[in-house]
Amino acid sequence: MLLVVEDLVKHYISGGFLRKKEVVRAVDGISFSVNAGETLGLVGESGSGKTTVGKTVLRLIEPTSGRILFDGRDVTAVKDIRPLRKEMQIVYQDPMSSMNPRMRIADIVGRPLQIHGMVSSRRERDEMVRRLLERVGLSGDHLYRYPHEFSGGQRQRIAIARALAPEPKFIVLDEPTSALDVSVQAQILKLLKSLQEERGIAYLFISHDLAVVRNISHRVAVMYAGKIVEMASVEEIFGNPMHPYTKGLLASVLEPSPNAKAPDEILPGEPPDPRNPPSGCRFHPRCPLADERCAEEEPALMEVGSGHWVACHKV
């Protein structure tokens, strides 16, 4: 296994001295793993903590507790994380805000190469950047342009080229297609898949869009209020969803079809405030199956079938 996350917790503590102390339980004890060359889809609504998980795994956010093993090394324990950065990368939702607007493409994509000592001269760097740009479907002549001169889809390709540059084994993709138009989203999904096939990179694909996750993932973990509530292969999650939340999410999805109508069976209420999550199973106030036990006792994530994990008393 390339990445193993054990009991990861991230709490934000605000207030204190004069104000009321508040603890935001963004991520509250989750475990998962990602195999080499595999895509794990991480689905959830706003406030589920999915983005925090992605950034904590890369130690862009310091975890409160838990262990993150990458390729056998403990990410949370290393003193200098920078050499590890070569092997784990990230692509953000909004490529514009994730690029320095005053840098040229040659620098944006070329910096990782220089930082990790993969090139010895500017010419060599520019040559490699040119090849990377061409690989992600852009013209190599764009080297000396600035990010704002590109369309949203092209910028996301540049962001992907930057993530590819240090030849990583693992990339966190944080809603990489959510800001894009439908027609362009499909291009990026195809590109990501072909890069994975070609280079064997593992992805942690974070998204709120179930259809997109289905398209790109091998396995899927569903998050709700800082917890993983269900995790299984993509066929299992979509073919045999077990957690009431997963079922509800799937029923909420609208597909373009001639007999489509507004969904009938839907989840009531809204995702909880992470500062004040419900007791017991965090989903119980919205759950059609909930009983007293659900309100009191937190269900553990248990394996109910081969590789199919569910955290629900009712399963």
Binding site: K55, L58, L60, R82, P83, R85, K86, Q89, I90, Y92, S97, S98, M99, N100, P101, R111, P112, I115, H116, R162, A165, P166
Partner: peptide
Amino acid sequence: FVEAARAIG
């Protein structure tokens, strides 16, 4: 982009 800069090392 500052976080992204940290991410590339």
